[in-house]
Amino acid sequence: MSLLVPDTGLLFWMIFSFGIVFFILVKFGFPVITKAVEKRNQFIESSLEAACQAREQLAAVNTQAEVILQEARSKRNTILNEAQEIRNKMLNEAREAAETEARFKIDRAHAEIEESRNKAIISIRDEVTGISVKIAEKVLGERLQSDEKQRALINRLLDDELVSNA
């Protein structure tokens, strides 16, 4: 049963080679690898954590930006509304001012027209009265007495005439 009896020579070589392999691997092999793998695992873990945090931060920043944007939008809206109101007010004011101005001018014009018309009527009346008196003098061939009385009569007649003409 030589299979079950360990051979001295092989035993020697096994101890020798396994010893060397063991020494080399324990010194330069496995600890290096396991340490590196561990380090890498830690690195991956910390990176994942950092990425997670970054994502959270980004989300926070995004919501913040959203809020700011919203605020800005509402502010813009209010500003726009205000401007609109101011514009409308200004327009209205201007319109009102223009209207009053125009009305004032028109009124003044009316007054002036009335005045000049009155003046014209008065002067025409004077003229007409004069002419009428002259005509009447010529017709009557004499000087009419009491100018004042005559004039009042003519004026009355003229008024009647004008009224009936009107």
Partner: peptide, 22 residues
Amino acid sequence: ISITKNAAALMINCMVLLLVIL
């Protein structure tokens, strides 16, 4: 302590192991 077939194979395998791990 001859390097028999098994001893030689053992050494080759040890070299292979070192060449894999180192």
